[in-house]
Design a protein around this nucleic acid. Structure first.
Lengths: 357, 357
DNA sequence: TTGTAGGCGTTATCAA
DNA sequence: TTGATAACGCCTACAA
């Protein structure tokens, strides 16, 4: 690729001005048919493809929407040393590697985002990074007309900074006093319904909550859990039973409880991913679900349907959340107002892990 | 957003030239610490975010890789009239809509593509469209440093046109005399292994192939099927038993065979999606799988593990294909040569639909 | 209907 | 170490 073909090349070859070339592509009816053919022929002959950058610069908009994820959600394979192609293929065919964990909830939101963007004729730019303040997300922000992000290591300041340039939507993060648009679900009522089921239907009296309060939505879920216990006249714990969740010392309190033989009768996990990890752990210790312990999740990811037993969980409308984000962004770009906060409903899905299904 | 903040604004506020602003961001060590702080403070105060378009234009590269899909792979929801948010959410929570069909094989390839792009510090641009010759894909090509595409309605001429500007990788399309890079799997041996299993292990003598030869890879699968039958001394059909596959008159020959009561003993479907549709159809007609008919797929998509019975299929290393595409593109961009064609291995996965698992 | 010319925001070259 | 200034490729009034 020696020299990229430009309007100048096409213009020269067609014997017209660069303006005519541009017109031919942007307002074909404005140019005489014969001239148009001339230009198109030249463009074809030269392999002309308009530069997106130049176009974006000239028009001030790129027609792209961005979706940004922080490392928090990236499969470990991202940071792993580069594997050879052979190794990659072998791992995948063996059913190892992160293909196993696909799709996560972020992928489901992303899918909805893509669908809606296509429907509205916009391209999607995907970015990712670890940086809590650095340029990671910022440079994506400079290339899109609107940006949606997953909650993560980004500092509020960064987000506000970015938000001054383009509209921003953030998922699963409670509304705050910021200029961003928030999309969340009704976490508290959802967990209450779940606990009602465990206590009311199954009659469990010893129910515990597992999850790290670090993630923004988890706090709301825990509050819903506490409220539900209180409503049933059960003792309310001030903190999650196991807050180590998915960190290094993963599930240590849970392992301790198993060893001590005083496991709660039901474990309400803050996310499906966590619940699946718990199922694994329990299985390794020879504990049966749901006979010995009931386990529930939150999210409704695909893997939860594939597990044994399948997961009782709260299904979130992930794809709709992604689609809504696109609508908010395109509307905002077009100057139409949108509420700063959307709270979507969820649904209790009964599986085998609580004793139903 | 009145006026986008530019280097000029930052430069003025910091009392330096625009060159210094640029240097501060691109080569911080080249600028005196005090000056740097001055610039950064100004940038922060003004909410400065560098324009991706301007950067791309000036540097001649965007650091983005493109992934293009044709309508062929898009969920029907893309073309459906816009649903209200409430309807979208309701459908999704009810388990209807296309969330059910996610992820398809394209999504798995895309996932691998994204993972590898992140690893290599590149952003991903997603595009889609129906146009068989139009600008749909071309404009994406003008915005990226490299492009990967799914086979579809794109004419060879379009692809060649695009290929003159940026390196192009195409999936699941047999190598041809073009300048593109091709990534495929060993279709023929895979199907042979599958047929060997059906004939050798299960003893089926009446085996038929379902699939439309339109898609590029399917032809190879059918040839593998024919070769396998021949090797077993079974009669070889010149054409697929049911070539209507997923089109309008979907599975009509199959329905006819059911009505006539002369269904083959085993149905080898060209893809998992097709096999799942066949499972549905058979169930509606009260036929049991695998007792009455054995069914197999090809791809190894997630939905095939969720079906009842689970699908016996040929697993493709989709994520690895996506990752390989990124490697080919980045290498080619960097001037490193790559083979024009990669043929990856597959694996036979036994499920309940053939009578195993 | 076609052409001229200015501007979009950065980067890079070369001086100062 | 910092600053002019010329690209980069396209779009779009405005003129011809």
């Amino acid at each position: 690729m020696a020299h990229r073909t430009t309007v100048y090349d096409v213009a020269e070859r067609a014997g017209v001005s660069i303006a005519t070339v541009s017109h031919t592509f942007r307002q074909p009816e404005r140019v005489r048919p014969e001239t148009r053919e001339l230009v198109l022929a030249a463009a074809r002959a030269l392999g002309y493809v308009p530069s997106g950058s130049a176009r974006g610069l000239a028009k001030g908009r790129s027609q792209a929407l961005g979706l940004y994820a922080f490392d928090m959600f990236l499969p470990s394979d991202v940071n792993a040393p580069a594997l050879s192609l052979d190794d990659l293929v072998r791992r995948e065919l063996d059913g190892r590697g992160d293909a196993r964990r696909f799709p996560l909830y972020v992928d489901e939101i992303q899918h909805g985002f893509e669908i809606e963007a296509r429907r509205l004729g916009r391209t999607v730019m995907l970015g990712a990074g670890a940086s809590r303040d650095s340029l990671g997300s910022i440079d994506l922000a400079g290339s899109v007309d609107g940006l949606a992000i997953f909650p993560g290591s980004a500092g509020r300041d960064l987000l506000e900074h970015v938000g001054r340039g383009v509209p921003v939507v953030i998922f699963s993060s409670p509304p705050a006093h910021d200029p961003m648009h928030h999309i969340t679900v009704a976490n508290e009522p959802a967990v209450r319904e779940l606990v009602d089921h465990l206590v009311g239907h199954h009659g469990h009296r010893s129910v515990a909550f597992l999850g790290e309060l670090a993630a923004p939505d988890i706090g709301a879920r825990f509050r819903g859990f506490q409220a539900a216990l209180a409503a049933h006249g059960l003792p309310v714990s001030a903190e999650p039973f196991d807050a180590t969740a998915m960190t290094q010392d993963s599930l240590r309190p849970l392992r301790a409880a198993i060893a001590a033989g005083d496991l709660p009768r039901a474990l309400v996990c803050a996310t499906d991913q966590l619940a699946l990890a718990v199922l694994d752990l329990l299985a390794r210790h020879g504990l049966r679900v749901p006979e010995d312990v009931a386990v529930t999740g939150f999210d409704g990811i695909v893997a939860g349907r594939l597990s044994e037993p399948s997961l009782t969980t709260i299904r979130q409308p992930f794809a709709s959340m992604g689609r809504l984000a696109v609508r908010i962004l395109t509307d905002t770009i077009a100057g139409r107002e949108h509420p700063r906060s959307y709270v979507l409903p969820t649904r209790l899905v009964l599986g085998g892990s609580c004793g139903c299904g």
